[in-house]
C-alpha cells in the first residue's frame, strides 16, 4: 500500500524560537489510522496542523499523496482533508444540515445534492436526519455536536481525516459510543486518519499505529500491541498512569 501522508524531518519553531516540533519523520499508510499520543505541550496538535497547513513547518516537509503540501493550492488542499476538533466548532447560525453541507455549498454543488449528502452522513454518524437536520447547534448535546462535526468533515469524501481530541470533552460512556461509531465508519470509508489524543485507551482501540511524542520529538512509532511492551521510559510512565486507579482498586480488594 502507498503512503497517504509522510512527515519528513518536520520541525516547527515559534517566532520566539521555541522548538515545538523537532525533526519528526514517519509515514501514514493509506486507509490506516494513526494515533498521536503524548502529554499536553508535546507538539501533537502542532504536528497534526502541519498536514493542512494550519501550521507551516519551519523545517522539513509534509507530503500528501507524495506531493509537498506547500506546492499544492492551499484551498484545494484543505478541502480534500477533513478536520475535526474537540470543540466541534459548528457554525451557530446554520442548521445541522447546512453545517454538514457547507463545504459542498462552497464548492458550488446544487442544494438537492447537499441535502441528500447531509442526510446520508447524519445517518452514518447515528443521527436521524428527520429529527436533526433542521436543528441548530445550541439545541444539541455535546455528543451530538461531535457527530455533526464528524459528518461535516466527511462531506466532501476526504482521503484524509485529521482529528484533534475529537472526543476529549465527552463523558466516558458517550466517548466509547463515539469511538465505536467512528471505527465502523472508518472500516467503511477507508479514510486515512491522523488522530491526536492523550487517551491511551482511545489510541489502542482505534489506531493501527501509535506515534508517541515527547517535547516535540518522536519517541516511538509502534503497533498498539508493541506499544504496551515498549521499554521507552516516557511510554512506560504514560502507560503506568493509565493503570494507576485500576491497580489501587485491585490492591484494595485483596487487602
Amino acid at each position: 500500500m502507498s503512503e497517504s501522508v509522510e512527515f519528513r524531518n518536520v520541525s516547527f519553531a515559534t517566532s520566539e524560537g521555541r522548538l515545538l516540533l523537532d525533526g519528526i519523520s514517519f509515514k501514514l499508510k493509506e486507509g490506516s489510522t494513526t494515533a498521536i499520543l503524548g502529554r499536553s505541550g508535546s507538539g501533537k496538535t502542532t504536528l497534526l496542523r502541519t498536514v493542512n497547513l494550519m501550521r507551516d513547518p519551519t523545517g522539513g516537509e509534509v507530503l500528501v499523496q507524495g506531493e509537498n503540501v506547500r506546492s499544492k493550492d492551499l484551498i484545494d488542499l484543505r478541502r480534500s482533508i477533513g478536520y475535526v476538533i474537540q470543540e466541534a466548532g459548528l457554525f451557530p447560525h446554520f442548521t445541522v444540515e447546512r453545517n454538514v453541507g457547507l463545504l459542498l455549498e462552497a464548492l458550488g454543488r446544487p442544494k438537492e445534492e447537499r441535502g441528500c449528502r447531509s442526510a446520508e452522513l447524519l445517518i452514518a454518524v447515528g443521527l436521524d436526519p428527520e429529527a436533526f437536520a433542521h436543528r441548530f447547534p445550541h439545541q444539541l448535546s455535546g455528543g451530538q455536536r461531535q457527530r455533526v462535526g464528524l459528518a461535516r468533515a466527511l462531506a466532501a469524501q476526504p482521503q484524509i481525516l485529521l482529528m484533534d481530541e475529537p472526543f476529549g470533552a465527552l463523558d466516558p460512556v458517550t466517548r466509547a459510543e463515539m469511538q465505536q461509531m467512528l471505527r465502523g465508519l472508518l472500516d467503511r470509508f477507508k479514510t486515512t486518519v491522523l488522530l491526536v489524543t492523550h487517551d491511551l485507551d482511545e489510541a489502542l482501540y482505534l489506531a493501527d499505529r501509535i506515534v508517541f511524542l515527547s517535547d516535540g520529538r518522536l519517541v516511538a512509532d509502534l503497533a498498539p500491541e508493541d506499544f504496551l511492551r515498549s521499554e521507552a521510559p516516557e511510554i512506560q510512565a504514560y502507560v503506568r498512569v493509565f493503570r494507576r486507579g485500576e491497580m489501587r482498586a485491585r490492591q484494595g480488594a485483596s487487602r
Partner: peptide, 22 residues
C-alpha cells in the same frame, strides 16, 4: 468563537466565503 473560525479556514473556505458566510 475561535474554534468556528479555525474550522472554517481548515475546511477550505476562501477568505471571501469566510467573511460572507461566517
Amino acid at each position: 468563537d475561535p474554534a468556528v473560525i479555525e474550522v472554517a479556514r481548515a475546511m477550505g473556505l476562501t477568505d471571501w466565503q469566510l467573511l460572507v458566510k461566517v
